[in-house]
């Protein structure tokens, strides 16, 4: 809403936090793309095996759980302001911050 609230430079700590929030936002996108990878295997000759796809999916799943746990652990509450101001982009006519 008000441009003066968005400061250009941040302390190292809040900078880290914002990048962490970015990571939290990116994680589902990355997960979504990676979960689709087994679909690409079908092109190869006789097609993919369910066992391979199953192992891939469950390993990826476990990795996502661990990474999400790490990110969420450090993403403490009460930094909506940081998250809100960092989005910068105005959405809608009132400038929804996210």
């Amino acid at each position: 809403m008000s441009p003066e609230r968005v400061s250009v430079f941040l302390a190292r700590r809040s900078y880290r936090r914002r990048r962490l929030a970015d990571a939290a936002r990116l994680l589902p996108l990355a997960g979504g793309v990676l979960f689709c990878v087994p679909l690409l295997w079908q092109g190869a000759g006789g097609g993919a095996r369910t066992v391979a796809a199953m192992i891939y999916v469950f390993v990826l799943w476990a990795v996502l759980v661990v990474v999400s746990g790490l990110v969420s652990r450090h993403l403490r509450g009460g930094e909506d302001e940081a998250g809100g101001a960092d989005g910068g982009g105005a959405k809608g006519d009132g400038g929804g911050m996210e």
């Binding site: 929030a21 939290a24 996108l29 997960g31 979960f35 999916v57």
Partner: peptide, 16 residues
């Protein structure tokens, strides 16, 4: 597994 992957992605992307 797709029935579980959707909610997984939503919860991992809770920040959104």
């Amino acid at each position: 597994v797709t029935i579980y992957l959707g909610p997984t992605l939503v919860m991992i992307g809770w920040w959104w």
